[in-house]
Simulated scan of single mutants.
Amino acid sequence: MLHSHQDEDLPMKRKPAYVVCLLTFFAVVPSFVTAAHYDVYLLAGQSNMDGRGDASKLTDQQRQPSDQTIIFYRNLPKSSDGWQPLAPGFSIAPGYKGEVPSSTFGPELGFAKEMLRAEPERKLALIKGSKGGSSLRRDWNPGVQGDPKTQGQRYRDFIETIGMATKQLSERGDQYAIRGLLWHQGESDSKLQSGVYETLLLQFVDRLRQDIGVADLPVVVGEVFDNGKRDEVRAAIRAVGTRGAGFGLVTSEGTSTWDEGTHFDAASQWLLGQRYAAAMLKIRTSDSNP
């Protein structure tokens, strides 16, 4: 149509409308050119996933926002207000009254850095829904599918958060694929028998896979810190993380805490993030998942 003889023979007074159409066309093109494809990773759990690492302990390079990673963080009533460039501060410590970003961080920083070091051509989108003090048996309980009244508040929030985040990606014109789940939780359930926690965690994983429509979603679980009183839950986490294809384990070996044996310090949070990346990459390699 742009090259038809009819268009070339239009009277001069008709030309402006034709020019406007061309300008409109070319104005729309950049939105398609700049659209990105993101590998989406889900981050869920309690305080050590939310992160209590002191951001002031990071180096300038570690603190630098990523131009290849975005994050959608929601820890109600606080949130990142949509997608934001990944940087420290997507974490809400108890008693924190300010806005996001805060002065703390979780494993997402080391995770993204290590993933991009291994695969520098990728773009990452992290959906983080975490809450300090939350339990798997109650707060993250997936309940009955399709019946929110039977589900824990954190599980409902997380499913809602994933829906909001992916919808925004689509509305931006971006493409995405949900590539995996990072889970770090267990301190609030440390009194459960290992078999009980293992069953609950597998039920959570199965339901999440169903609810987001990714049946083979890779899952990496992280050990809680060994303070001598968490043997049962640590055993359950190891059992899930080493159960076979599609699962990975992050150990807490060699880590340290800034308090009395619960919350990982800044260096350990960064290390755990790197271990999450290594475990996820191993799953991807073994599954030949591009």
Rank of each mutant, 00 (worst) to 15 (best):
D259A: 09
G53S: 00
A27R: 03
A87W: 02
A87Q: 14
G244H: 07
G246C: 12
R117A: 14
R154P: 00
P88C: 06
A93C: 03
Q145F: 01
R172A: 08
R63P: 00
Q269S: 14
D67E: 12
Q61T: 10
D39P: 00
K15I: 15
Q185F: 04
D189A: 07
G152Y: 11
G98E: 10
I212L: 13
R238Y: 08
Y38D: 01
G89K: 03
T59S: 15
Q68R: 13
D9F: 10
G163S: 09
E8D: 11
N289W: 15
E99M: 08
T251I: 05
M164N: 06
W183D: 03
L76C: 01
L281H: 11
P218F: 06
D206I: 00
G132S: 14
P77V: 11
V40A: 03
H184R: 05
N48A: 01
G195A: 11
R14N: 05
S286G: 11
K149T: 15
G82C: 07
F25K: 01
I162Q: 03
Y18F: 09
L42V: 02
Q151V: 08
M115Q: 11
M1Y: 12
D216T: 14
Y41M: 01
K113A: 14
W83H: 05
M164E: 13
R117C: 01
R207E: 10
Y155K: 02
Q151S: 07
G213I: 10
T24R: 06
N289M: 15
L200G: 10
S130I: 11
L116G: 04
